[in-house]
Amino acid sequence: MSILTSSDRVVGAASVGRTKRLRPSYWPFVVPALIVVIGVIVFPWVFTLWMSAMEWRIGEEQRFVGLQNYARLFTDVRFLEAMLHTLVYTALSVLAPLVLGTAAALAFNTKLPARGLLRGIFVMPMMATPVAIALVWTMMFHPQLGVLNYLLSLVGIGPLQWVYHPSTVILSLVLVETWQWTPLVMLIVLGGLAALPTEPYESAQIDGATAWQRFRYLTLPMIKPFLMVAVIIRSIDALKSFDILYTITQGGPGTASETINLYLYSVAFTYYDIGYGSAIAVVFFVLIIMLSLILLYLRQRSAWNTGDGQ
């Protein structure tokens, strides 16, 4: 095995033959990473795919059933409902922090008094443990003892059932998610705002743009790439949200807040139907990948400052 020296690395196209001869010496460097990738990423997925093609209940004999588990998904009302809950929960958990985070970033981008301190306080929810947050919010949501209903009573609004009623449970959970993750969006957008050039704003002032028009025609399009990053991160995060949902509602009342993640958990670890659970996991994974690809494409399209994307 030969050692690659710096002079070897700078050789040009003229010494292709020599580079070829050296190629086997690269392999030992790749092997450790390859083993880790195969063991940690590739194998679990191949194994999940294999499990999804089996009828596999813990304690029973395994049997190959092909695509039967996937066919079952289409007639499983609980799965379809969970899918709808997931989409609604994700859409709201992306939109609300996005709007509020952008507004907060715009506020923190001005010369507020004690801006640093306020910003520090604002990002605190993001640093807290989800389970701890969930427990605190569970207490706050309590219809009789919770502080939220008390606060509503101060402004003359009657008590709400919050997470204890099917019609308000998802909105209530979105409230928790929004509270925790608005700071993240704020930080991303604030970074974007800080990177914006200042001259176009002076130019727009001379061109006659009002404050709203400067936001609408300059700031918003120019921070779009940053908003798209926030949307990507938030979408993936909200889709795979589990801890807060499980701790506060376990998918209830009934199955009113059961997302795919929670349903998958029930199928696999409550009903021990590993094969069917794996099929749900595969479909869920494909959904996340597709959504990520679409968002990444949109992110690229929104870039005005790099490459030719527009």
């Binding site: 001259e199 176009p200 002076e202 130019s203 061109d207 006659g208 743009a209 779009k224």
Partner: peptide, 25 residues
């Protein structure tokens, strides 16, 4: 009308949009 050292063009707009921005407003 002012011309700036760093041009101060609107980076996300086409040249035509840049030039017509004031009129569109």
């Amino acid at each position: 009308a002012m011309v700036f050292q760093n041009y101060a063009l609107y980076p996300h707009m086409t040249i035509a949009d840049n030039m017509s921005f004031a009129l569109r407003l």
